[in-house]
């Protein structure tokens, strides 16, 4: 490295550093937050008055499922899952939610769907009807959506569909709408195995 090119190099470096420090000074978080608040505060427009149904949508093994939110207590992140011995494979274990022990059900195994490893973004959807309470594991939570009722079609009848009896219908996007009442009342989920 010759001295002249070395000098130029150092000069360029110094200029870039000055620019960076200037940029740091101009970035103001308060301004960003204020802009977002303004955007959120804008009123909703042109809502059509059609019958709609609210659905909680989540992904499981690459497929999307939907649940009626009326039996959903809340959604919690999956933390500290404790496996319980002498339970069927679809009972993954129990988690503590606000001081209660709730069993977690893996619908993939319950419906005999292809397994995918747990990711960091796993969440648990807590279902309850006052008598029965458990959590459903889901890969990705997509949030709630409202769909027009006419878009919901009856479930397709397949032979040997393990989900038969648990489906309320199918949306236009082929989301399977699960029946939370049936799941909560399913005697298979009451595990009482003795060893």
């Amino acid at each position: 490295m010759s001295t002249t090119t070395g000098e130029e190099h150092w000069l360029v470096l110094r200029q870039r550093l000055d620019q960076l420090s200037r940029m740091q000074e101009t970035a103001d978080p308060d301004a960003v937050l204020a802009q977002r608040a303004r955007q959120l505060a804008a009123p909703l427009q042109d809502e059509e008055q059609v019958a709609r149904v609210a659905l909680l949508v989540f992904e499981l093994s690459g497929e999307r499922y939907a649940l009626s939110p009326y039996r959903v207590v809340e959604v919690v992140p999956l933390r500290q899952l404790t496996p319980v011995p002498c339970t069927p494979g679809y009972i993954l274990g129990v988690v503590a939610v606000r001081g209660r022990l709730v069993s977690v059900l893996d619908l993939r195994q319950f419906f005999e769907l292809p397994l995918r490893s747990l990711s960091e973004r796993n969440s648990v959807i807590l279902l309850s009807d006052g008598r029965m309470e458990f959590g459903l594991l889901c890969d990705t939570l997509c949030g709630t959506q409202e769909l027009p009722l006419e878009q919901i079609l009856p479930p397709l009848r397949h032979r040997h569909d393990s989900r038969e009896g648990y489906l309320l219908g199918v949306t236009a996007e082929h989301w399977a709408i699960l029946d939370a009442e049936v799941l909560l009342g399913d005697p298979r989920l009451v595990v009482n195995q003795q060893v």
């Binding site: 909680l56 939110p69 009326y70 959903v72 959604v75 939570l141 949030g143 709630t144």
Partner: peptide, 11 residues
């Protein structure tokens, strides 16, 4: 999650 739970409650 908070947003999702809030939307559930809203629904």
């Amino acid at each position: 999650l908070l947003g999702v739970n809030a939307s559930i409650e809203a629904a």
